[in-house]
């Protein structure tokens, strides 16, 4: 009781209240920090659990550009389109590969504009779409080059995937 009397003396009361306020504030910040750390831990655990699972391939085997680097995949993709366009008496107005998307490095895109007879254009499209690795047009437009003209033009964005193995 003597200790208590000293502790509760008016002189000691103010420092005591300040100490309590300080420890309460520190406790509050401690709880905040604990919440943040727990969130981080839970997120890391979930990320590690997901990362340890075997990935699901984007496309069946052989349909995506695999292995090597993106540069090699880009070269193979460009070559595939060039080969499809050559030998069909087509006017290649534009074949331009688009820069890599930082969020989706596996996405290979090329802007294409080619014109010619309807039969030649369809042969070109069939060759592009039936080749391996797979190419599809994300968006496309087929129409006459001008009203009354017999030649037609296809323009659009061809898409292929680069999926490094391992």
């Amino acid at each position: 009781m003597i200790m208590l009397d000293r502790l509760l003396a008016p002189r000691a009361l103010l420092p005591l209240i300040m100490a309590v306020a300080l420890t309460l504030t520190a406790g509050w910040f401690g709880v905040e920090r604990l919440n943040r750390e727990r969130d981080r831990l839970t997120t890391l655990e979930a990320m590690a659990a997901l990362g340890s699972r075997a990935p699901v391939p984007l496309l069946p085997e052989g349909l995506a550009h695999g292995g090597g680097s993106r540069r090699a995949a880009e070269a193979a993709f460009g070559r595939q389109i060039d080969q499809a366009a050559s030998g069909h008496r087509l006017l290649v107005e534009r074949i331009e590969q688009l820069a890599a998307d930082r969020e989706r490095p596996g996405l290979l895109l090329a802007r294409i504009a080619v014109s010619g007879s309807e039969a030649d254009i369809m042969r070109f499209v069939r060759r592009v779409e039936s080749g391996k690795p797979a190419i599809r047009f994300a968006d496309w437009h087929i129409g006459r080059t001008a009203p009354g003209e017999s030649t037609i033009r296809i323009e659009g964005n061809a898409l292929a995937l680069w999926e490094p193995v391992g």
């Binding site: 590690a48 997901l50 340890s52 990935p55 996405l107």
Partner: peptide, 25 residues
């Protein structure tokens, strides 16, 4: 789990790509 965390980020990028590529393919 450094390796798993790296795989997780690769997987995340792959899933982003899948979201774009799957409808087209």
């Amino acid at each position: 789990e450094a390796a798993s965390l790296v795989h997780y980020h690769e997987r995340l990028a792959k899933e982003r790509l899948r979201r774009v590529a799957a409808p087209v393919m």
